[in-house]
């Protein structure tokens, strides 16, 4: 009896925490469907009185949100593609080739992870300016595609792949590229999905770098557009909420679809002891 009561209380407590974590999303969605002004009613509403899609229509027809959505998508896909290729190649080399200086090189990379990205921000900005890559997708993709974390993730995974597979292929006369392409990549599929997911979500959610590199309005990504929209439309709560919904929903969908791989990545990264 006492146990049962305790169990109910425990579940109620958990439910309360879950309500707190989910509530802001709930309110965001509801407010985005309210007619202008209703979200500033007092007392606040937990549910729209009348539903309207006007803010979404407004965002896409008048405020160019479709364009920003496309920018975010293209950029995130681009970064993901390049980073998969570049990091899996390097991870493969670190896991399966024996060469001089491998251990110190890898250790050096790992310890460089502590350097905060803000240190390189200004010189990279000037460099991109000289290269004429400001206000271009490549200005965002190039500096972010090689990631030490990504190399680490792939290497950890590939170390678990038996060398005998590769040896057998070599005896059959396969070139290194063929081995990489035909054997390693298919084997590494789970970790590649994990890395892709991390990279995609990281790029979709990234703010500081696109803010600096993409100053032309037609190149804005959703987070940058949202923050600049806030400057002009602070007053329009419902509109801002609709913009937030559009920004958040794609990552949520991707995450829900590929949850398993995301959790795996956290495990690999987490037990790096």
């Amino acid at each position: 009896m006492k146990n049962k009561l305790w169990s109910i209380l425990f579940h109620l407590g958990m439910l309360l925490v879950a309500v707190i974590t989910v509530f802001p999303f709930w309110w965001m969605l509801c407010a985005s469907l309210m007619p202008s002004g209703e979200a500033s009613d007092f007392p606040p509403r937990f549910f729209p009185e009348t539903f309207t899609a006007e803010h979404y229509i407004n965002l896409f027809s008048r405020l160019n949100l479709g364009r920003y959505f496309l920018n975010s998508l293209l950029l995130a896909l681009g970064v993901t593609l390049f980073s998969l290729l570049v990091n899996s190649m390097a991870g493969f080399a670190f896991a399966k080739f024996r060469f001089r200086g491998r251990t110190p090189l890898f250790a050096g990379l790992i310890s460089a992870m502590i350097i905060p990205g803000q240190v390189t921000m200004l010189p990279v900005f000037l460099l991109l300016n000289k290269m004429g890559l400001l206000n271009s997708y490549f200005g965002v993709i190039l500096p972010t595609m090689a990631s030490i974390f990504g190399i680490f993730l792939i290497r950890q995974y590939l170390q678990g792949v038996p060398d005998s597979l590769i040896e057998a292929a070599r005896i059959d006369g396969a070139g290194e590229w063929l081995i990489y392409w035909k054997i390693i990549l298919p084997l590494a599929k789970p970790v590649l999905v994990t890395l892709a997911l991390f990279t995609f979500m990281g790029s979709w959610n990234d703010f500081l770098w696109p803010l600096i590199v993409l100053t032309r309005e037609d190149l804005y990504t959703l987070p940058v557009a949202l923050s600049s929209l806030l400057g002009e439309h602070v007053q329009d709560v419902e509109l801002m909420m609709a913009g937030s919904v559009v920004t958040v929903v794609p990552v949520l969908v991707v995450f829900l679809a590929l949850q398993k791989y995301y959790l795996q990545g956290i495990m690999i990264g987490g037990v790096k002891e």
Binding site: L126, T215, R216, E217
Partner: peptide, 16 residues
Amino acid sequence: IPWGAAYEKLLTAYAG
């Protein structure tokens, strides 16, 4: 040129 980014845009154009 959008106002929000105008100053940065002009300065980088000047630098380049």
